[in-house]
């Protein structure tokens, strides 16, 4: 969408960096997003690209979403000494923020995450000085940075190798090199669980979303790999392509475990019903902290097919009842 074709209220948004486009999942709106997908602007807003997935409200101690937040609730561990005085202040603020009046809030001016060296870049320079510097290390947000523990040298080498492989990988749908796409948010791979054909995240998500096409063969074509027709149940976003099955499993595991730390908004702490049920990647946790028990009720019919009974809630009958 060009800025000319947008209403004036939306053209203003062009100057505002999109929050999602640097996150691991990417911005699902792509070109249609009214916010800026310019990397230069985003870099100005958050001093380090790899920090962009950390919730800034959490860093201030005031994230209203709590465990449901889509951003990472982690504090950067490898802070330079300059930032050290901020840390205790944030921790002290965290518990009483809800009781505090808003007037005290401006006193704690939002502290942007302090700039820190990309740990991968510096470690790679020490470990393998011969390796050529890759632009993507600095430019692209990385899935590998999301882990809390420091990577060892083996992991660095592994990452270097993965980046070198990723450079030349072409998407099977748009036929472009994924890491050479114009828009930075589109430089993401969508990994299919069923096979190892590369696609960019936008393309494969776009294709799997075409279920409303008349006569579409959803299981045989849309939910399958466009190249080999191997069915996949979900797409895993990643900023690097994998070298072997081990790497692929690691990327998928990392993605699934990351989602498993976020509360499911459909389940809504037991108040709602999640359409994905036991297959949901998000966490199904009740308000008291206990996890949902996954017990499936099955029944077999006369034809020998086994079906799963969806749990029925009394509240659904009550809300539909005319007596109340």
């Amino acid at each position: 969408m060009s800025p000319m074709s947008m209403p004036p209220s939306l053209t203003k948004l062009r100057a505002v960096p999109c929050r999602y486009f640097l996150s691991a999942g990417g911005c699902t709106k792509g070109h249609a997003c009214p916010f800026s997908h310019e990397f230069t602007i985003s870099r100005g807003a958050s001093s380090d690209a790899s920090n962009s997935n950390v919730c800034r409200f959490f860093l201030q101690g005031t994230c209203a979403y709590g465990s449901k937040c889509r951003y990472d609730h982690v504090r950067p561990k490898r802070l330079p000494a300059v930032a050290a005085p901020c840390a205790p202040q944030q921790q002290n603020q965290q518990p009483p923020t809800k009781s505090q009046t808003p007037s005290t809030a401006p006193a704690s001016t939002p502290v942007p995450p302090p700039p820190r060296e990309n740990p991968w870049a510096s470690r790679a320079a020490n470990a393998a000085a011969a390796a050529p510097p890759t632009l993507t290390t600095a430019a692209a947000p990385s899935m590998f940075d999301n882990g809390d523990e420091e990577g060892d040298d083996d992991a660095v080498l592994r990452r270097e190798r993965a980046l070198a492989i990723s450079e030349g990988v072409e998407c099977g749908i748009c036929l472009e090199r994924v890491l050479a796409k114009d828009v930075l948010s589109e430089r993401r791979f969508g990994i299919l669980t069923g096979c190892s054909h590369p696609f960019c995240l936008m393309c494969i998500r776009g294709w799997r979303g075409t279920t409303d096409r008349p006569g579409a063969d959803i299981d045989g074509a849309v939910r399958a790999c466009p190249l080999c027709r191997a069915p996949s149940h979900f797409v895993v976003p990643s900023t690097v392509w994998f070298a072997d099955e081990e790497d692929k499993d690691a990327i998928i595991q990392r993605y699934v475990s990351r989602l498993n730390n976020i509360d499911c908004r459909h389940f809504n702490q037991g108040a709602g019903t999640c359409p994905f049920g036991t297959s949901c990647f998000y966490r199904h946790r009740y308000a008291d902290g206990t996890l949902e028990e996954t017990s499936l009720r099955k029944y077999g019919n006369a034809d020998g097919e086994v079906n799963i009974v969806q749990p029925v809630r009394l509240a659904e009958f009550l809300s539909r009842s005319h007596i109340l």
Binding site: G172, I173, C203, W207, G215, A216, D217, G220, A221, A224, P226, L227, R229
Partner: peptide, 8 residues
């Protein structure tokens, strides 16, 4: 060209 179309 109909049901079995694939973007590849």
């Amino acid at each position: 060209l109909k049901t079995q179309w694939s973007p590849a």
